[in-house]
Design a protein around this nucleic acid. Structure first.
Lengths: 334, 334
DNA sequence: TTGTAGGCGTTATCAT
DNA sequence: ATGATAACGCCTACAA
C-alpha cells in the first residue's frame, strides 16, 4: 500500500536499516555480498528514498523556486518557454527540481521567496526578467537567500548572474550583412533607456563603426515599442528616406516581423535580421540571433549552487554567453 | 541564523511546543490570552511552519507534478505559457505548488511521476497535451497515482479530465460570421484523425448545417499541417476556386495567420477567425476563439484534489468548458 | 563490516 | 486549557 521504507528493505534483506542506508550512501563500506542482497531487496520492493525525510534530515529541499509570470499579451512569442524548459533540464542534471510560484510584482516575489525559503520549501531562486535597478537582487541578498539572475541590473558585482552578450548578437548580424554586401544597415529597436535594447543598439553601432559605415547613419537608428505595428511603421519611415537602407537589424523578432510585413506589402528589397529566434522567426523564414538558452539554464543552476555570494568577495560573479546568428532567407544576399 | 521553529516560538511565548501548534491548527482550543502571546511571538520571530516537516508528518507534499516539454519549434505561439501560469495561480489558491520535471516521452513521464510519487515529492500530476489513445492515463491509473488530464484520450470514463469544448468554439465563429452576412464559410484545419482538429471541424460543420449552408461546401473543408505556409497555401486554393468563400474559420491562429498573409498579398476580401487567441492574434488584429485557460487551471486543480477516481464509480469525471470568441478587425463585416 | 541511538520540525494522541 | 510523548523516514555519528 504505502511506499516501502528503509525498514521494509532492511527486513526483506535481513539487515538493519543503517546497512540499507549505507548501501545507498556509502556503498564501499558494505560487503559486496550484503550489498547485493540489499540491492535485490530494493529492486524488488521498488524502494525510493523519501525525499521529504531526506530534506528534513539534510535541511535542504533540493528545490529551486521560480516565479512564473503571466504572459505578456503583446509579445509575439518569447524565449520564456525555452528558458523554463532549459532550467528544468539543467536542474535534473543537478538533482534539483523547480518549484513554481506566482507573485503580483517584484516586491511580492521577494516576499514569497522569503516565505518559501523560511518554510524550507526552496533552497534558492532563479530570477527572470531582470530590469535595470531591479529591486529583487538587493532584496534577496539582504535576506541572505541564494539566487541567480538571468540578466543584469547595472549593479551586479555582488550576486551571481548570467546574461546574453546582446551587443555581440547585433554585431554578428551586422557582420553577416556587411559580408553580404550591404553598406547602409539600419537598426530598429526599442526606446533608449531599456538596458537590453541599448546593448543591442551598441552592438549594431560598434560593428558599423568598425567597417567605417557609421557616418551619416543617424537616420538609420529608429526606436519604438516592441510591437508588430511599430516595426511596420518604422520600416515605412526607413523606406521613405531618400537614401534608404538595404538591410535592417531589429532588436526583436516582433519588430523584425513588422518590418517584413511592410517589405512584402511594398515589394521592397530589404534584408532583415531579428533577435531571439522565436518560432515566429522560423515561420517567417527570418534570420535571427539565437540566445543559447540551454547553456544559460546550465550556467544559472551552476551559479546558484556555487559558492554563496559575499563569502568570497572579489570573485567573478557573472557570466556572459555569446548568442548565435541563425541565417535564413530574410537576409540572403540579393 | 536558522529559521525559527515551534520550539523557539514556544520559548519566546513561555508555552510548550504543542500550544504553539494548537494556536496554528486549532486556535479555538487555546485561551485568547495565551493565543495572543503566541501570535506575538510568531510575528516577532517571523516564524513559518517548516513545510518539509509538515509533509513528513502528514505524508503529503502539497506538490503537484508537471512535465514541462521542450517547445514545439514550429508553433507560432501556444497557450502553454498561459496554461502553466493559470495552473500555478490555481494551485496557490489551494495551497499547492507545482513541481516541474522533464521527460523524454510519455513513457518516461509516467516513470518519472512514479519515482517522484514514491519519493513523496508529489501528491499527483497534471497531464498536458493529451492525445487520443494517450498511454499516460491508463498508466497512472494502474499505479494509483492521482492525476488530472487537460484534454481527452477517447477513453476517459475512469479518470478526471478537463477539456475545452472545441466544437462550440468553431460553431461560435460560424455564428458570428453568419450574423455578419457570410454565406460561404470555409474551414482550414489540420488533418483528419487529430481529435482536437476533428472536433473543431465538427463545430464548423454542425453550425453551417443548422443554417442550411452546408450543401456543396465540400471544397470549403481543407486540411494540412499546422503551419503558416499551409495556411497561406490553403487560402490560395480557396481564393482560386470558382465560388470562393467570403470567410474562413481556421483551426489555429497559425493557420489563420497564413490565410491572412495570402489575403493581404492578393488584396482579397476574406473574413478570418483563428483559434486560441495567441499573442499572434492580437498582433494581427485577428478574431480568435479564446480558451478559458484560467478556468481550466482551477478546474484541473479541483479535479485533481477531488475524490479519488475509481472510488465512487459512475460519477462524472470530466468537465467541458466553453471557449469565448474574441472579435477583432479580421472578421469585421465588410 | 554492521548495528544502535538520536534528532531534523511537526502534529495527533493522550494525559494532566 | 495546556503539556508530555511518540512517530513520520532518513542519515550521521558512534559503538560493537
Amino acid at each position: 500500500m504505502h511506499p516501502p521504507t528503509v525498514e521494509d528493505v532492511a527486513r526483506a534483506a535481513g539487515v538493519s536499516r543503517q546497512t540499507v542506508s549505507n548501501v545507498l550512501n556509502a556503498p564501499q563500506r558494505v560487503r559486496p555480498e550484503t550489498r547485493a542482497r540489499v540491492e535485490t531487496a530494493i529492486e524488488q520492493l521498488g524502494y525510493r528514498p523519501n525525499r521529504v525525510a531526506q530534506s528534513l534530515r539534510a535541511a535542504t529541499s533540493r528545490m529551486i523556486g521560480y516565479r512564473i509570470e503571466p504572459m505578456h499579451p503583446h509579445a509575439l512569442g518569447s524565449i520564456h518557454d525555452r528558458f523554463l524548459h532549459a532550467l528544468a533540464e539543467a536542474g535534473r542534471a543537478a538533482d534539483r527540481h523547480l518549484l513554481l510560484f506566482t507573485a503580483d510584482d517584484p516586491q511580492d516575489e521577494v516576499a514569497n521567496v522569503q516565505a518559501l525559503h523560511r518554510a524550507g520549501a526552496i533552497d534558492g531562486v532563479v530570477l527572470y526578467g531582470i530590469q535595470s535597478g531591479d529591486p529583487r537582487p538587493p532584496g534577496l541578498r539582504q535576506l541572505r537567500i541564494p539566487f541567480a539572475a538571468f540578466g543584469r541590473t547595472g549593479a551586479d558585482a555582488e550576486h551571481p548572474w548570467v546574461d546574453i552578450d546582446n551587443a555581440a548578437g547585433t554585431a554578428a548580424a551586422v557582420e553577416h550583412l556587411v559580408t553580404g554586401g550591404h553598406r547602409r544597415i539600419a537598426f530598429v529597436g526599442y526606446p533608449q533607456g531599456a538596458a537590453v535594447g541599448d546593448r543591442r543598439a551598441d552592438g549594431w553601432r560598434t560593428a558599423l563603426d568598425q567597417h567605417g559605415l557609421l557616418d551619416g547613419s543617424h537616420h538609420l537608428d529608429l526606436r519604438g515599442e516592441d510591437s508588430l505595428a511599430t516595426g511596420s511603421r518604422l520600416a515605412e519611415v526607413l523606406l521613405d528616406h531618400p537614401t534608404p537602407p538595404t538591410a535592417v537589424v531589429a532588436a526583436t523578432d516582433t519588430l523584425a516581423a513588422g518590418v517584413l510585413r511592410t517589405v512584402r506589402q511594398r515589394h521592397a528589397r530589404l534584408a532583415v535580421v531579428g533577435f531571439d529566434d522565436t518560432p515566429t522567426a522560423g515561420a517567417l523564414d527570418l534570420s535571427s540571433v539565437r540566445q543559447p538558452i540551454e547553456a544559460v539554464g546550465h550556467a544559472m543552476i551552476r551559479a546558484l549552487l556555487g559558492p554563496v555570494p559575499g563569502e568570497t568577495p572579489g570573485e567573478p560573479t557573472g557570466q556572459l554567453l555569446a548568442p548565435e546568428l541563425i541565417v535564413r532567407a530574410s537576409s540572403a544576399p540579393h
